[in-house]
Design a protein around this nucleic acid. Structure first.
Lengths: 129, 129
DNA sequence: TCTGTTATAGGAGAATATCTTATGTTAGAT
DNA sequence: ATCTAACATAAGATATTCTCCTATAACAGA
């Protein structure tokens, strides 16, 4: 029997959205990786299962190489050293582009949802045959 | 300067949704790979840029191994041989599960959209400082 | 006969994701 | 004083997924 929990239909992966989530968090204030992981984990859409920390760190590094953010080590020596990230102008533009992309995503998913609804009704009727 | 067209913010990849799209199409009628590619390409959310055929064929094969669909070569000998796929009961269940997953996706994206909206407004105000 | 469309599919490399491990700091408990 | 747990970053390795290129073959129409 198929293990539905390992099937994408269970919705475990919506990971590309971590990028705009990071940018969105950085638009509000400069943050370091660990904090971002916590913020994302606390967000309603990620309740409980926090994102892979490694992935966030790597995303941040990649974004820095692409010029979306710049980083520097924090000067306050409270706790372990933290690398703070700051959103650049390019990063802001990228984030604003995400707006229309997310709109499109939502629209696309809405349409797909409608179609799947119809299709499910269809198969249920078909079962009686 | 960053090439935004190669940035996920341009929204090229929403590919995991190809799986439910395939299932949804098969819920209506038995189809073969090439036809599914066309259907998806014609759908409003994929206008123009048709999905990679290879990917669809591989998805179908993977789905068959997981028991979501079964396939057989078409008997009518019009044109090249076609492998027709048929949705199984498991496949129907998978599709119905996609319903709630897609709802969650839509909700999550909606929330993220709101947050990004706020964040963008925030940075725009910040620019004046 | 030759070309374009239909139809399926493998190979390879790039990009992503995930799981494990390593390193070091610091706060608080024992 | 020492030990543990939480904080913080990050590399390594594997697994999965995507994408581009290529191969094969049947057929329709010029």
């Amino acid at each position: 029997m198929l293990d539905f929990d390992k099937c994408p239909c269970s919705g475990s992966n919506l990971d590309r959205l971590i990028q705009p989530m990071i940018l969105m968090n950085l638009a509000q204030e400069d943050l370091y990786g660990y904090k971002i992981v916590q913020r994302i984990a606390d967000s309603p859409m990620f309740k409980g299962n926090k994102p892979d920390g490694t992935g966030v760190y790597r995303s941040l590094k990649a974004m820095e190489q692409r010029g979306l953010v710049v980083s520097s080590w924090s000067l306050d020596n409270t706790g372990p050293a933290k690398r703070f990230y700051h959103l650049t102008n390019v990063g802001e533009e990228c984030l604003s582009r995400w707006l229309s992309t997310l709109e499109e995503y939502r629209k696309a998913i809405g349409m797909l949802l409608e179609d799947v609804h119809k299709a499910c009704a269809h198969t249920k009727r078909g079962k009686g045959d």
